[in-house]
C-alpha cells in the first residue's frame, strides 16, 4: 500500500514516478560523499566532455521514490518508521550515462514482499530514463524491513 510506512508496501505496488533535473551539485556532492575523485563526476574535464551522474546514484533515486510514496516515513525529511530498514542487496545495470542538465524520470514497483529466516524483505525494481526516453539504469534492490527477527524484543 502506498502512502503509509515503507513496511506497508506490498507485492505489486507501483510507485508514483519522480522527475528531476540532474545538477552539477547533485553529482559532485554524491561523489564527494564517498571520496570518489574521478573527474567524470565533478566537471566536464573528462573523456566524456560532460559531467556525469555517478552510476550508484540510483540509491538516491530510491530515497526520492520512497519520499513521494511513503508519506508516514519520509526518510529524507528525517521521519522514522516502526523499525530501521537495512539495505541487503544493490544490483544496478547501466544502459547509458546520464549528464548534468538532463531531466530524469524514476519509476519503480515492488516485485515481492517476502519473509526469509523470520525477517521481512522488500524487493524493489526501478528504472531511470531521461525525459526523452533513453534508458539510463535498471535496478533491483532488496531491503530488510526489520533487522531483529520476529519475536525478539528491542
Amino acid at each position: 500500500m502506498l502512502g503509509g510506512y515503507i513496511s506497508d508496501l506490498d507485492t505489486g505496488d507501483v510507485f508514483e514516478p519522480v522527475e528531476y533535473t540532474l545538477t552539477a551539485f547533485m553529482c559532485s556532492e554524491y561523489a564527494h560523499g564517498t571520496e570518489e575523485q574521478s573527474e567524470f563526476f565533478h566537471s566536464a574535464h573528462n573523456p566524456a566532455g560532460r559531467q556525469l551522474r555517478p552510476p550508484t546514484m540510483i540509491h538516491a533515486d530510491k530515497m526520492l521514490l520512497l519520499e513521494k510514496n511513503c508519506l508516514k516515513e519520509q526518510r529524507i525529511s528525517g521521519m522514522k518508521g516502526p523499525d530501521a530498514r537495512v539495505h541487503y542487496e544493490y544490483h544496478a545495470k547501466q544502459h547509458s550515462a546520464a549528464y548534468v542538465g538532463e531531466t530524469l524520470v524514476v519509476t519503480g514497483r515492488i516485485v515481492e514482499k517476502y519473509v526469509k529466516r523470520n525477517r521481512p524483505y522488500l524487493w524493489y525494481y526501478m528504472e531511470v530514463h531521461t525525459k526523452d526516453g533513453r534508458l539510463v539504469t535498471t535496478y533491483n534492490d532488496r531491503t530488510l524491513l526489520r533487522y531483529r527477527p520476529e519475536g525478539v524484543a528491542a
Binding site: T34, E35, E36, S38, F40, P47, A48, L52, P54, P55, T56, V86, H87, Y88, E89, Y90, H91, A92, K93, Q94, H95, S96, A97
Partner: peptide, 22 residues
C-alpha cells in the same frame, strides 16, 4: 564502483553492472 570507474572508465559508467550483497 570507484574501483570499476578507475579500471574501466566510461565502459563501466555507460554499460557496466554491479551487484553487492551486504
Amino acid at each position: 564502483s570507484e574501483m570499476l570507474v578507475r579500471e574501466f572508465g566510461l565502459d563501466y559508467i555507460e554499460r557496466g553492472e554491479l551487484r553487492t550483497k551486504f
